[in-house]
Design a protein around this nucleic acid. Structure first.
Lengths: 81, 81
DNA sequence: CTGCGATGTACATTATACTTTACATTTTTC
DNA sequence: GAAAAATGTAAAGTATAATGTACATCGCAG
């Protein structure tokens, strides 16, 4: 299974971060330079942003990338020939 | 300038990590499930992987995302209304 | 109830990450 | 120095992130 070759399941806490800061999807979208539709899709977990966008979001929220995005079901499946 | 709305300049240390582990582009490509052309482009810094691929690379090298990819010229341009 | 701001959804379109293939150049190894 | 392995490049194609727009719903202030 989870062998780094296939797509990972990545969860994010954008919805939470946004709630904390009390900003709207539109405000966040403007801040990081995407459309609201992109924020909606991201919060729904339906896709997989570019690293670039991920960094912009993390920078905006002033959190670490690993705090905003976490790999689900990660275990040491790697390097086990 | 660097206002989170535009594309960030992201550098990576894939080439270095690969040198440390002494693995080829092809081996890395196979390990993370992409083609060698993708690894080449990444090392050249020409593009901006998906967060998914970025995570797979970090997991493979067993380093933090922030160790493998760093935002260049990052400063506290944000939140400075 | 009415209007409005915030959110969710759908669909067509554009931009770009990634693939596939093939060939050219560099580096390694014998 | 020749063979082989590793790396770089380039072009055309596929998959999907992100856009733009429009509409529908929900919560809430008036």
């Amino acid at each position: 299974m989870g062998s780094l070759r296939s797509k990972l399941i990545i969860e994010n806490t954008i919805h939470v971060q946004r709630a904390i800061r009390r900003i709207t999807q539109q405000q966040l979208a403007d801040a990081v330079g995407v459309t609201r539709a992109t924020i909606v899709a991201l919060e729904k977990g339906n896709y997989n942003p570019s690293l670039d966008l991920a960094f912009r979001l993390a920078l905006y929220f002033e959190v670490d990338l690993g705090e905003l995005f976490t790999v689900k079901g990660e275990r040491d499946e790697l390097h086990k020939d």
